[in-house]
Design a protein around this nucleic acid. Structure first.
Length: 264
DNA sequence: CGGCATTGTAAA
DNA sequence: TTTACAATGCCG
């Protein structure tokens, strides 16, 4: 009996230490050691891709579509409260084959829409500048860019502050039929955009997906909610595959917007 | 409704 | 680079 009691006590101490450690520093030991791998997305072999790493984001760039296949980044609670002002100019990343110049978008009728938002890069001047690289830009209708897309970006920053850490991946849907291209370079104008969001350290872990038309979203972001499985079906990509299967299955099957908007 | 913030475009 | 303008959405 005494041995049992001491065993229980030891376990309790271990659990307490782990708990305190988690609270002590979000940047240090996390229950899942996945920081790097969660920023990778599996895409089909036939999809062209050049990987580009920046300070605040990782990009799979498609030289034929002249924009990203996907952009992934981690957003911590601390980062979401950065103070760096929005400044930067759209710039071609000359290191990347197929990257358009800002001029390709001029008078096109479309915004140079950030994929990873400048608003998520306020924790670092470097990350802020790099967010204006054309590798991180897609042609977006202004109604989307300044509408539901922007609202979703703001919502994600709220969620990050509450849930400690978010992993976010977004991009154009490039599996749709190509109906329009802009500029001398021929940048494809996507008809839809996707975004997937994971809160791996929430209890329980949560995931959600969005697919929005390249235009006004009637009814707001709620109307664009889908499961991550749905986004995978549309894009052909595989998100967050580094998660343990038991967690990935649950997290990627839900499309529960209300579950993301409870206080805690 | 007007004021404000954010995300942009365009001209000089 | 600086300046002006525009669309969206929130807030009072």
């Amino acid at each position: 009996m005494k041995r049992l009691l001491s065993l229980v006590a030891i376990i309790a101490v271990i659990l307490l230490v782990v708990h305190l450690d988690r609270k002590a520093s979000a940047a240090a030991a996390r229950p899942l050691d996945l920081e790097g791998s969660l920023l990778n997305v599996k895409i089909p072999d036939y999809v062209e891709s050049e990987m580009v790493d920046y300070t605040g984001m990782t990009i799979s760039f498609n030289p034929e579509a002249h924009q990203a296949n996907w952009v992934a980044w981690e957003l911590t609670a601390e980062e979401a409260q950065g103070e760096e002002p929005r400044n930067g100019s759209f710039q071609q990343d000359t290191r990347v084959k197929g990257c358009p110049s800002p001029a390709d978008y001029r008078h096109s009728g479309y915004d140079r829409g950030h994929l990873a938002p400048a608003g998520d890069m306020k924790w670092s001047p470097e990350a802020m500048r790099e967010s204006f690289m054309m590798t991180n830009i897609s042609p977006q209708a202004h109604t989307l860019n300044a509408g539901a897309w922007k609202k979703l970006e703001e919502k994600c920053r709220q969620w990050a502050r509450r849930d400690s850490v978010l992993y976010i991946v977004c991009g154009p849907v490039l599996t749709d039929e190509v109906k329009e291209r802009i500029g001398p370079t021929g940048v494809i104008v996507p008809q839809r955009f996707f975004k997937v969001v994971l809160a791996p350290y929430a209890n329980p872990p949560r995931g959600i997906g969005f697919i929005m038309p390249n235009g006004a979203v009637e009814g707001g972001m709620q109307r664009a909610v889908v499961s991550i499985d749905d986004v995978e079906a549309v894009t052909g990509f595989d998100f967050f595959s580094a998660l343990p299967d038991s967690i990935e299955t649950i997290v990627e099957s839900r499309a529960d917007f209300n579950g993301w908007n409870r206080p805690r």
